[in-house]
Computed example of a mutant assay.
Amino acid sequence: MNQPIAIIVAPNGARLDKQTQPAVPISPQEIANEVQACTAAGAAMVHLHARDSVGLHSLEVVDNQHVIEAVRQQDGEVIIQLTTEAVGRYQPEQQRHLIETLKPEAASVALRELMPDASYQDSFGQFCTWALQQRIFLQFILYSEQDIQHYLALRSDGTIPANGHHLLLVLGRSKEGLQPQPQQLEQIQPWIKQFGDIRWAVCAFGLQELPCLLAAAKLGGDVRIGFENNIYQQDGELALSNASQIVTLQDQLAKADIAVLTNCQMRELIACSWS
């Protein structure tokens, strides 16, 4: 059997609306209901995007607190990962403030957003060290080979601690219309080997999402699935829900003899990563 992997679900993202995908969860209760269905289908972690009162992406503390509370009332076991995505509205100080205030179990950060230039390196490094001390499982989002090189350099010089974090490799980009392909993983596999013991995951945009996730899982990577990256079934029709996407993924993983981690097993691996 292949190495067990974790399923992370990203149910709504920052920009998706109900005009584009009627099933996208927007309100705290809708998000909570969807998360519960996704964990029942096998997701160990949820990548949360809060929305404000008019449905826009929000990094405001109160909006995120409402979503966390709603999810916890529905599902007390799922690992909650808060996003810090800027969407052109938030600065690094505001992104850090959200995590420093709410201290979630996990958080995702894009290197190019929290450290847009070298002048932010010290504050970024202090934030990473603080997160490790607080046992907040940071996930660094890497969009390109350049980002991977940058991450490795920051880890080498101690800006990013050597342990206690996770990585997300993004295949394709929705804005640029770049369609991902499973073969991209072959191109970056030499870089992946340099991650060492650090766990990594893949997300992929559009209809090639499932083949890309399967290719990542066969290499031992975790996978992130959901409407944030892809709102379609393999036949091109709108997906019924995030949970239905996970069910399809689970079927393919089972055929490939790849086991899926529970949230408890994922927590154990996270705890081991602190040492």
Rank of each mutant, 00 (worst) to 15 (best):
P92F: 08
E93W: 06
Q95V: 03
R96M: 01
H97N: 03
I99W: 04
E100A: 09
E100Y: 07
L102K: 06
E105S: 11
S108P: 12
S108Y: 09
A110I: 00
R112D: 00
R112F: 10
R112K: 04
E113Y: 06
L114Q: 09
L114W: 11
L114A: 01
M115T: 02
M115I: 04
P116F: 06
D117Q: 09
A118L: 00
S119W: 03
S123Y: 14
Q126R: 13
T129A: 07
A131I: 03
A131G: 03
Q133I: 10
Q133G: 12
Q134F: 13
Q139M: 06
F140H: 10
F140W: 15
Y143F: 15
Q146E: 12
Q146K: 11
I148K: 15
I148W: 14
Q149N: 07
H150D: 05
L152W: 15
A153R: 15
L154G: 08
I160V: 14
I160C: 12
I160A: 08
G164R: 03
G164P: 14
G164D: 02
V170E: 05
V170M: 13
G172M: 02
S174C: 00
K175H: 00
K175Q: 01
E176S: 00
G177L: 04
L178V: 03
P182V: 04
P182F: 03
Q183N: 10
E186K: 11
Q187M: 11
I188L: 13
Q189A: 14
P190I: 10
W191C: 05
K193Y: 03
Q194C: 13
G196T: 04
I198G: 02
A201P: 00
V202E: 01
